[in-house]
Amino acid sequence: MYLGKVIGRIEARVRLPGLETQRIVLLQPLDFNQQPIRWTLLAADVTGAADESLVLFEEGREAANPFDPPLPIDACIVAIVDDYQYQA
């Protein structure tokens, strides 16, 4: 999992079947000094994360696992971060 921040959202009326009500948010991956790393990406969300939330997201085939029946999802928010301790 990577640390990230919810920085926005998208609207899309035309979607593949099964994704009609799936929330898709815009994420900025961060390091643990909360500096931006990598590039922005889109992720599904199973936690109800609000804008500006610090979250953990997972990528790859595993990101589709929470969905039954399976959905074509390759990134998903899986936790909302309350707090962390980090010593570089």
């Binding site: 899309a12 979607r15 099964g18």
Partner: peptide, 22 residues
């Protein structure tokens, strides 16, 4: 995982058309 791709050996698929980004 897209239902229509079950028999297609793809690794990239369009899942939605974007109307708006904030």
């Amino acid at each position: 995982m897209a239902p229509s791709m079950k028999n297609t050996s793809t690794d990239a698929v369009v899942i939605a058309l974007i109307d708006r980004i904030d």
